[in-house]
Amino acid sequence: MTQTPAQPVPAGLFEQAHDLDDAALVAALGWPVPLPCVPGVASNLRLLADHIAIMRGARR
């Protein structure tokens, strides 16, 4: 059921998620995300970055 993405995302994308602007962050995914999705996708990438940090032991 779980499929590997067709194209791997750049290493460290989530570690840099808070340092990039929306357009740069979403562009790093490597596929043409429709323009209306860019702010929402960027916001969710940053949210995931926060959860990855917590999962690794960072405190909120």
């Binding site: 995302v9 994308l13 995300v33 999705c37 929402g40 969710n44 995931l48």
Partner: peptide, 23 residues
């Protein structure tokens, strides 16, 4: 990648971001 705009925006953006998580 084919029909992103047919998804509910609130779901779509979360799924696109989640699909970017590496192995």
């Amino acid at each position: 990648r084919q029909v992103a705009m047919a998804y509910d925006p609130a779901t779509r953006d979360r799924l696109i971001a989640g699909g970017a998580l590496p192995d």
